[in-house]
Every structure is written in structure tokens, then in C-alpha cells.
């Protein structure tokens, strides 16, 4: 069981979706994440900045197949915070 802990950084709808995708993948490219969420580049960058500042998401720029790509992944802290947040949401709904 995860410790139920509500997290306002994660709770914003788009950031919750970002964490949800990142929690079940090893890494995802910025462009793919933008397409999956149907967000503008600037909006996604803004959400990612918040998550990076909270040390929940790790950004790594690498040159793969001859082009620069930005890969995103959840940090251990981010993974824990996301799972705790989901547990908190479920606990609130169950407690009704």
C-alpha cells in the first residue's frame, strides 16, 4: 500500500496525465507526449517546468538517430508522489 498523500503539484489535470503516462513508461519523447496530450509546446513546457522544479520529472536531451530529442521520465520521488496522490484520490472516493 502507498501512503495516501494529496499533492497539488500533480493534481492539475494536465500534470496528472503527464505523470500517469510517465509512470507506466520508461521514457517518452517530448514530441510524443505533446501529441498524446494534445497540448501546445508552450503549455507542455510550462507543466514540465513545474514538475522538474518539484524534482518529479527528469529531462534528458540526447542525440538519437542524428537528431536532438528530449526524453522525459519520472524520478523516484515523482513516482512515489504520483502513486501516493492516486492512493489519496482513491481513499477520498472510498471514504464517501
Amino acid at each position: 500500500m502507498y501512503k495516501a498523500e494529496f499533492d497539488h503539484v500533480i493534481h492539475a489535470p494536465n500534470r496528472l496525465q503527464i505523470c500517469s503516462i510517465l509512470s507506466i513508461t520508461a521514457e517518452i519523447e517530448f514530441k510524443v507526449l505533446r501529441e498524446e496530450l494534445d497540448l501546445s509546446e508552450s503549455a507542455l513546457s510550462k507543466h514540465l517546468k513545474t514538475l522538474v522544479q518539484a524534482n518529479y520529472v527528469c529531462l534528458s536531451k540526447r542525440t538519437d538517430f542524428g537528431r536532438q530529442r528530449t526524453w522525459l521520465s519520472l524520478t523516484k520521488e515523482g513516482q512515489r508522489a504520483y502513486l501516493n496522490h492516486v492512493s489519496a484520490l482513491k481513499a477520498i472516493v472510498k471514504g464517501l
Binding site: 520508461a26 521514457e27 510524443v32 530529442r69 526524453w71
Partner: peptide, 14 residues
């Protein structure tokens, strides 16, 4: 999948 830009997990993380 790497070409497409999404890497599946190989090892469990939690």
C-alpha cells in the same frame, strides 16, 4: 518503440 519516441519499461520501478 524507441524510434517512435516511447520506451517501454523493462525493469519494474515500484
Amino acid at each position: 518503440k524507441r524510434l517512435v519516441g516511447i520506451k517501454p519499461k523493462v525493469l519494474p520501478t515500484h
